[in-house]
């Protein structure tokens, strides 16, 4: 399995990269290549041009902004994020999610933004970006815009990015003070994409949930919040609304059978992981 022919340009700057993307050819961006290369090798994708942003050191950052947000540049690898001490301290959900991606050998090359731009429905990072209310900074030769994570992931392998746009940075705001979190996934074989996964962030006030963010992935479609379950949680203590949460999941999820799992298993796992994750997040609330 060898890629079909394409041309390759190593972008010299962000401006150069977006200029290439605007050039009218069918172009794909490569950074770490861990999502794109299998697609190219299997000839499932056949761009005319591959734009390599891997040499843009200006995008190779993992740092804290003045406002206390975590900024992850487009070429920062998952391993870089995992190794960053501030990430473990301030964004433990993100660190846990990244630790669940593939294997160390994949994370050494795979980037946070690459995974977000690829949007595999079973991938960890789109769900993580949504639950952490990340903002995605997107640049093209026409404009620079920001897109909230919730509006980014429009369908399996589909995002709000237009063909001429480059995801240059993901911004993860600091989680609300005292928020509890949980990230859980189930995979038949360790290191594989999740059969089902869930990310939860809860804020507790006066003994009840004041704010709930609950995102499921691997259950069909793209990673998405389960608003009805969030609403059921809000204003209550989780143990009292467990049945309601289960009912909402039953009503909202419509996974399909595939070679890895039956729809029934996915529904069961989604329920179990969600209930466990909510309990864990609740216990972690300050």
């Amino acid at each position: 399995m060898k890629p079909a022919p394409f041309d390759y340009v190593a972008a010299r700057s962000v401006e150069h990269a977006v200029e290439l993307l605007a050039g009218g050819t069918d172009a794909k961006v490569i950074a770490g290549g861990q999502s794109l290369m299998p697609v190219l090798n299997m000839r499932l994708g056949r761009p005319e041009l591959v734009v390599d942003i891997g040499r843009l050191d200006v995008l190779n950052h993992v740092r804290i902004s003045d406002s206390g947000a975590l900024l992850v540049g487009a070429t920062a690898t998952q391993a870089q994020v995992l190794a960053h001490p501030d990430v473990n301290r301030g964004w433990p959900l993100l660190a846990t999610a990244v630790a669940n991606i593939g294997h160390p050998q994949i994370r050494n090359r795979g980037t946070i933004c690459g995974s977000l731009a690829h949007n595999d429905p079973a991938a960890e990072l789109p769900a993580t970006a949504i639950v952490l209310d990340a903002t995605l900074r997107i640049q093209s030769s026409r404009r620079i815009r920001t897109v909230p994570a919730e509006q980014m992931f429009v369908g399996p392998f589909m995002t709000a990015l237009t063909p001429d746009e480059l995801l240059v940075e993901a911004e993860f705001p600091p989680p609300p003070a005292g928020a509890g979190w949980s990230f859980r996934e189930f995979a038949t074989r360790p290191g594989d994409f999740a059969t089902v996964g869930v990310a939860v962030q809860l804020v507790r006030r006066d003994g009840v949930v004041a704010d709930a963010r609950l995102v499921l992935f691997g259950v069909g479609g793209s990673a998405a919040r389960v608003h009805s379950a969030e609403e059921a949680l809000t204003g209550s203590s989780p143990s009292r609304v467990e049945d309601q949460v289960r009912a909402q999941l039953k009503a909202e999820l419509d996974p399909a059978d595939d070679v890895h799992a039956s729809a029934g298993l996915r529904r069961d796992l989604a329920e179990k992981l969600t209930i466990d994750a909510i309990a864990e997040a609740w216990a972690r609330c300050a």
Binding site: G33, Q34, P38, N41, D52, A79, I106, N108
Partner: peptide
């Protein structure tokens, strides 16, 4: 760092 060379282009 260890990487998969099948998922890397030579030019990279």
């Amino acid at each position: 760092v260890a990487v998969r060379s099948c998922l890397t282009l030579a030019v990279q």
